[in-house]
Every structure is written in structure tokens, then in C-alpha cells.
């Protein structure tokens, strides 16, 4: 758990982060969204003390981050930046081993960990361990960057625009990978982005920042339904509100008994996917199946219509 208390950063009288207080629970993916200059990156970098706060405090699992030297603190926290920041003169394996080496792990343990991570990120060790970053594609470099951040099994992972340099298809894949990894290791992730779409897609909590202030810190559904200020609403954009709301819910939670004809949708898909399928195939009712393909009921257009409406 990360507890941020009245965290403030002044630069010569200019307040970049202004008394931000928030709590990030274990296993959360907290996404900090804001325009450039909103202070979101400064807030993130104060968590691992790449920037020292002017006032306020950060506690991780109850322990004040200032109680250990900054470089030792950072070894316990994973860190991923835009454009991956891999060391160009070191191989993929050496890059991933950076923090374990700094922490003095023995060689066998490091080798095991590097191989494990490479396999996890679908980069076969035999093929990729000894390559240089320049010999990888952008998506592969990004994955190595995340693998490197996870090498010493940190409980907290900080990510600064980690997908900013990727094209849309690779980005979607990288986002899905991240969610998978979070589920697997239970890592608490704090991620900075300027892209509200990405925030809603990835976050379990979203923190909206503007001019150094935390405007709203809530679940994606709350943010979509009840933006705290006009600025949050503006950041969301007015166009896709209904679809975003539907996109946050699983079909499985809104199945009603009954049958329907035609191609089924999966209970694991979002209501947005269901609506899309209904409109595209011109059906008012869709059969729903579970993960194994067994019918579990049906989804009606009327349900979708009700759920996509502005909550009262």
C-alpha cells in the first residue's frame, strides 16, 4: 500500500504538485492522467524520490520512503519510462539483470530470473538474451524494459508513459500483457499517461491531475459517470460516454435466462463488445456462452440501452 500525504513540490515558488493526498491499495493499477505540465510525472517521480518532495510524505507499506537512502529505495521499486531507457551497450540479459546485480544476487539466481522473465514476455532466452537493444523491435524493447523493472520482484511498479512510443497494435498487446502480469504477481502499479482512453482501459483507480492538484481520484466507472469538475469531463470528452460506461462492465454480470439465435458472445467480453455485435449483426438478443462455450443465457438490446444511459 502506498500512502501519499499532502505531497508538494515547489520549484522557485512555482508549485508543480500541490498537496496531493491519495492511497494506492495493494494490487491496484492506479493511473495518473493529466495534460502536460499537470504535475503527473513529478508526482510519480516523488514516489521513488527521483524528485525530492518539498513537503509531505510517501509511505510504502507504512514505512516512510525517506527512512532509507534513495538509491536503496529505488532498487525495491520497479521503474519503466517512455522509450524504454534500455542501456544500449548491454545485452538484453544484462539489462534485465541490472537491479539483481546491484542487489548482489548470486549468478545462478540471476540467470534463472532472467530466463524466467524472458519466457514470460515471449522472448525465448536462447534467441534474445545476448542481443543488444538496438537489434530488437520497438515492442520487444518495451517488453525488455518492463522485464528489467520486474527483475528484482518489486512489490511496486512505477511506469511513466510506458506505451507512449508504441504503435496502436503493439500498444494494445503491451497493455494486455501488463494486465496479465499484474494479475500474476499482484504488483501494485502506478502508471502515468496523458491518454484518458488508456487510463480507463487499464486503471482500477484513476487520478486526474491539473495544475498540480489532484482533481479526482476514483474508479473508472465513477470518473465516467460523475466527473468531479468540468476539466475532468473535458478530458473524458463527451463523445463516447455511453460506450465507455458499457466498456467497463462484463456481459456475464447482466445475463438473463433465455435463448437466442445466431453467433454467441462470451460472458467475459464487455457490454460494449456486446452492443457492437448486436448492432453489427442486426439482432436485438444475443446468446451468451461461458469460457468453455456452454450457453448461459442471453443479452438483450434493452438491457444494453438501460445500462448505457446516464445513471440517475
Amino acid at each position: 500500500m502506498i500512502q501519499i500525504e499532502a505531497l508538494t513540490k515547489d520549484y522557485d515558488g512555482l508549485t508543480v504538485v500541490d498537496h496531493v493526498t491519495m492511497r494506492i491499495d495493494d494490487g491496484d493499477i492506479a493511473v495518473i492522467v493529466g495534460t502536460s505540465g499537470s504535475g503527473k510525472t513529478t508526482l510519480l517521480r516523488m514516489i521513488n524520490r527521483l524528485i525530492e518532495p518539498t513537503s509531505g510524505s510517501v509511505r510504502i507499506d507504512g514505512k516512510d520512503t525517506r527512512s532509507v537512502p534513495a538509491h536503496l529505495l529505488r532498487r525495491e521499486i520497479g521503474y519503466v519510462i517512455q522509450g524504454h531507457g534500455l542501456f544500449p551497450h548491454r545485452t538484453v540479459g544484462q539489462n534485465i539483470a541490472t537491479v539483481p546485480v546491484l542487489m548482489g544476487w548470486d549468478k545462478a539466481r540471476i540467470d534463472r530470473r532472467v530466463e524466467e522473465l524472458l519466457e514470460l514476455f515471449q522472448l525465448p532466452a536462447g534467441q534474445f538474451r545476448d542481443r543488444l537493444p538496438s537489434e530488437l523491435s520497438g515492442g520487444q524493447q518495451q517488453r525488455v524494459g518492463v522485464a528489467r523493472a520486474l527483475a528484482a520482484e518489486p512489490k511496486v511498479l512505477l511506469m511513466d508513459e510506458p506505451f507512449g512510443a508504441l504503435d496502436p497494435i503493439i500498444r494494445a498487446k503491451a497493455q494486455a500483457d501488463l494486465v496479465g502480469i499484474q494479475k500474476r504477481f499482484g504488483t501494485t502499479i502506478v502508471l502515468v499517461t496523458h491518454d484518458m482512453e488508456e487510463a480507463i482501459h487499464l486503471g482500477t483507480k484513476i487520478a486526474v491531475m491539473d495544475q498540480g492538484k489532484l482533481l479526482q481520484y476514483a474508479t473508472p466507472a465513477e470518473i465516467v459517470v460523475k466527473p468531479a469538475t468540468d476539466f475532468v469531463g473535458e478530458l473524458l470528452g463527451s463523445g463516447d460516454r455511453a460506450f465507455r460506461l458499457l466498456g467497463l462492465r462484463r456481459i456475464g454480470d447482466f445475463v438473463e435466462p433465455g435463448e437466442a439465435s445466431g453467433a454467441p458472445v462470451s460472458a467475459e467480453q464487455t457490454l460494449r463488445d456486446g452492443l457492437e455485435e448486436a448492432l453489427w449483426s442486426g439482432r436485438a438478443v444475443l446468446p451468451v456462452v461461458d469460457g468453455a462455450g456452454n450457453p448461459v443465457g442471453r443479452l438483450t438490446l434493452a438491457t444494453l440501452q438501460r445500462l448505457g444511459a446516464r445513471p440517475q
Binding site: N48, L50, H71, L72, L73, R74, R75, E76, Y79, I81, Q82, G83, H84, G85, L86, F87, P88, T98, V99, L102, G145, R148, A149, L158
Partner: peptide, 23 residues
Amino acid sequence: VPPAATDAARGMGMTGWQRLAKV
């Protein structure tokens, strides 16, 4: 030296000397 590489080195917990010598 790419700024991203030095930033990553700092962010991963290298001391000033380690950053100089290793990166």
C-alpha cells in the same frame, strides 16, 4: 549518453558512481 538511459539508471537505484562507471 541518451537521457533515458541515465534516467533509467537512476530510477533503478544506481549510485552516482555506479551510473558513471556502468552506463
